[in-house]
């Protein structure tokens, strides 16, 4: 296939599938808790962190993690208390994180638009290593285990936070656990999808699943599956037409979500 060794193809396909599954699972929280603006800002903070890593010659993934988690730690309490509307958070912090990312890229040794720099922006087929793959495998496993262990607490939180508290479920630790996992997922997905577009995988697969089901177990399952399908199909599209991987995933995800809204039984009249 395109003259690539099978081992590389295997790494890419597995990486895309694991990224899609992890993002799909976590996306269920992001969509239902309306954390889109927070996730959007976190993904750009991860991009800025990775760019800083390139400029300083430090592993970009490490600083991407720091950027995403730091953003979650700062913005989490603000979003939680809802004292600032989501669009205000995004409006102020999105340009800041983008500006920082571009400044750091311009400081990176060599040309600013080197292949590593472009990979951070748009995602890259060849940036994924076997180590990344194992990290993604660990992450997807950790998210699945967390959802399984605390399913009823998450279910209560996703239904209605006040009613969850009322029933005796302490929601704050679970809310912050979600933010932490979202930060880690964004940072790990950065290589494949790119800082500008990683957020689509946190949104579209879960948003698609929500169009079809009311049962949360089914929503988690299908969100992960749609994540795998979108990331896998995006990978195929990227190969076939030599498109940046992130852009290809966005095209597929948007198409999938559009079809889901069109065919959604939730929107059909009996």
């Amino acid at each position: 296939m395109y003259g690539l060794p099978w081992s590389l193809i295997g790494t890419l396909v597995s990486g895309a599938a694991l990224t899609g599954a992890a993002c799909g699972l976590l996306g269920t929280f992001v969509v239902r808790l309306r954390l889109s603006s927070l996730g959007f800002t976190m993904s750009h903070a991860a991009f800025a962190g990775a760019a800083l890593g390139l400029a300083l010659g430090i592993e970009p993934l490490t600083l991407a993690l720091v950027g995403a988690i730091l953003t979650a730690a700062v913005l989490g309490p603000i979003a939680e208390r809802a004292k600032l509307p989501a669009d205000v958070i995004t409006g102020v912090l999105f340009p800041l994180t983008m500006a920082l990312g571009l400044i750091f890229l311009s400081l990176a040794p060599g040309t600013a638009m080197s292949s590593s720099a472009l990979g951070l922006l748009w995602g890259s087929l060849f940036a994924m290593t076997r180590e990344d793959l194992f990290r993604l495998l660990g992450l997807a496993g950790a998210i699945a285990l967390t959802v399984w262990l605390f399913f009823k607490e998450f279910q209560a939180l996703l239904f209605d936070r006040k009613l969850a508290e009322e029933s005796g479920v302490p929601t704050r630790p679970f809310y912050y656990l979600i933010l932490f996992l979202t930060g880690v997922t964004i940072a790990l997905a950065l290589r494949l999808v790119g800082g500008l577009l990683v957020f689509v995988l946190l949104q579209s697969p879960a948003a698609t699943a929500f169009q079809f089901f009311y049962d949360l177990k089914k929503i988690f399952f299908w969100a992960a599956l749609f994540g795998v399908i979108y990331a896998g199909a995006g990978l195929g599209l990227s190969f076939a037409f030599d498109l940046p991987l992130g852009s290809a995933i966005v095209l597929i995800s948007t198409l999938g979500f559009g079809l889901a809204v069109w065919r959604s039984p939730k929107r059909r009249r009996a």
Partner: peptide, 16 residues
């Protein structure tokens, strides 16, 4: 579109 069934809502009362 709230993703929850009536039985689950009532069961959630017992989660604590």
């Amino acid at each position: 579109t709230t993703p929850v069934l009536v039985r689950d809502v009532v069961l959630m009362g017992r989660y604590g």
